[in-house]
């Protein structure tokens, strides 16, 4: 599944990135997202929507769901 679908409080790992949007993927990689990294949804924006705040390892990063959709994660147990 993709990162934007991750429910709050579940921890999962990055498995890959969407193809066909190399620029976006490079941006995501540069700020730190990489395969096998641990991610968790921490906060949702006002009104429970965008932006989404994720914990990436020990770092907190805000994305909109459009960006989060480009990150593939393993389905949490």
């Amino acid at each position: 599944m993709t990162l934007d679908q991750l429910p709050k409080g579940r921890i999962c790992r990055v498995t890959g990135f969407a193809s066909g949007c190399e620029d976006l993927v490079i941006k995501l990689r540069e700020i730190g997202f990489a395969e096998s990294d641990e991610v968790e949804l921490m906060h949702r924006g006002p009104l429970g929507a965008n932006p989404l705040c994720f914990r990436l390892n020990r770092t907190l990063i805000a994305l909109r769901s459009d960006e989060a959709r480009a990150i593939q994660v393993d389905a949490p147990a």
Binding site: L24, I31, A62, L63
Partner: peptide, 9 residues
């Protein structure tokens, strides 16, 4: 543009 931003400690 997209929003990708680190939130500092």
């Amino acid at each position: 543009q997209v929003l990708i931003m680190e939130l500092p400690t």
